[in-house]
Design a protein around this nucleic acid. Structure first.
Length: 452
DNA sequence: CGAAACCTGA
């Protein structure tokens, strides 16, 4: 019976979750895998990976056997969450079920490993594939890009070309992304220009990568001009990319111009106000900072708190900035403070004092940073011998860097930090992407105040 | 019913 699943999918695609659920509820008992697949796919597509996993567990509890479709969708959910352990479990299942020859399943596995921080496993799956299609090549290039391995991404691209596989728009995104995150400006621009030879028309995301390429490397004015002269209307995202680079390069004058441009397009995005007001604070423009803070309050912007997540015993726990109520967060904060004391790395006592004194604002900030630290430690305190943990959304700054150094000395482990989009590998306290990530990617003033 | 895709902070 394929009518219900098709209806579920239709409703989900139109964004009508309620009707989709209603349809799902009408599926008779003993129900079909296909309906579950439709629901899981819908959840993943609308960025609700947690819901997808709940459905998956429910389905297993009913004794329904996952199909390749289920597995690819669930792997995609794992990728979104950074749920490496669950992803490995699925991989094991795939092997046992003899599904490891399916290109789509393998592609989903590569993507999952890439997004969950295990590049080695991604490479392992890639190399074990009998036939590799365009999408699998692209996903592997994106995985290298996310891990800041620009050279490797490029050589994979060249290899792909040699084998006569035609790159598509996504392949180029991965390639440009790799270049911008490895500081390979001229290479990136060259590849951007070569897109036409493949008959690919650059889209807004390609322009976004080039903006990032120029801006991150400090060519801020050039980036401004680039956006301004685009053949298509730039989105707020493009300007935001530039604004963030102005932030890391301390370019407050250009930052102001860019900020104005953003407000023309979208004045509801809280992050823009925060980036710009921080830039003002870092460059001593106090009046301007106050003006922006006020503006932000007047506009009633959407504030989405920063979120980090960790995986313990196959469950992913999410932590939001300023929220220390989560039992794991609480426990880890205490653990971290203990650990810090043990190695003589004592948190600034006056800040701890602020917590006791109940100065809300400062206490929140301490909790925020403690959580980030707690997460690093919490992860590293799990089973010895594992070298890999995933920390999502952790900003990298020199202080985190020294944190990483401390941790890798203490536990003799390799650690991997994942910030929003990419991974930093620290071994013996040294990041694999060299100075580049630290020089141009950090916004450390706020962290400094805590570590002293 | 199936996989990839630009930016981001207190």
């Amino acid at each position: 019976e394929y009518v219900l699943p098709t209806l579920i999918n239709m409703y989900a695609e139109c964004g009508d979750t309620r009707s989709a659920h209603a349809m799902f509820g009408r599926v008779p008992d003993g129900d079909c895998v296909v309906s579950y697949n439709a629901m899981i796919t819908a959840a993943v597509r609308s960025s609700r990976p947690g819901e997808a996993l709940v459905l998956f567990r429910e389905m297993q509890a009913k004794g329904l056997k996952p199909t390749p479709v289920t597995l690819t969708s669930v792997l995609s959910a794992c990728a979104l969450l950074g749920a490496l352990e669950l992803g490995r479990w699925i991989h094991e299942y795939v092997r046992k079920a003899g599904l490891d020859s399916l290109v789509k399943v393998n592609t989903a596995l590569i993507d999952m490993y890439g997004k969950c921080g295990s590049l080695e496993d991604a490479i392992g799956v890639f190399q074990g594939m009998e036939s590799i299609d365009r999408q699998a090549w692209s996903v592997m290039i994106v995985a290298y890009a996310n891990h800041s391995y620009g050279r490797e991404a490029i050589s994979l691209f060249e290899e792909m070309r040699k084998q006569g596989i035609k790159p598509d728009a996504v392949t180029f995104l991965g390639l440009l992304y790799a270049c911008s995150h490895s500081g390979m400006v001229s290479e990136g621009l060259q590849y951007f220009d070569s897109m036409r030879e493949y008959g690919i028309v650059p889209g807004i995301k390609h322009y976004g990568c080039v903006t990032d390429l120029l801006a991150r490397s400090g060519q801020l004015e050039k980036a401004y001009k680039f956006i301004d002269e685009l053949p298509i209307k730039p989105t707020a995202i493009l300007w935001r990319t530039l604004l963030s680079a102005c932030g890391s390069h301390g370019a407050v004058d250009l930052g102001k111009r860019v900020f104005e441009r953003i407000l023309e397009l979208d004045d509801t995005h809280g992050g823009d106000y925060v980036i710009y007001s921080n830039l003002c604070a870092n460059t001593g423009e106090w009046e301007e900072m106050n003006r922006v803070r006020k503006l932000m309050n007047e506009k009633g912007v959407v504030k989405v708190p920063g979120c980090s997540s960790i995986e313990i015993d196959n469950r992913v726990h999410e932590f939001f900035a300023g929220d220390a109520r989560h039992p794991h967060a609480r426990r880890m904060v205490d653990q971290v403070i203990e650990q810090l004391k043990l190695v003589g790395y004592v948190p600034n006592t006056s800040q701890v004092f602020h917590v006791e004194m109940g100065e809300e604002e400062k206490a929140t900030s301490l909790r925020y940073h403690s959580e980030k630290l707690a997460i690093s430690f919490g992860l590293l305190n799990t089973s010895p011998g594992t070298t890999l943990r995933v920390v999502k959304n952790l900003r990298v700054c020199p202080d985190c860097h020294s944190m990483a150094k401390l941790v890798s000395m203490l536990f003799n482990r390799q650690i991997i930090l994942r910030d929003l989009n990419r991974f930093h590998h620290f071994e013996d306290g040294v990041c694999s992407c060299g100075d580049y990530c630290l020089k141009s990617y950090c916004k450390c003033s706020s962290y400094k105040s805590w570590y002293g």
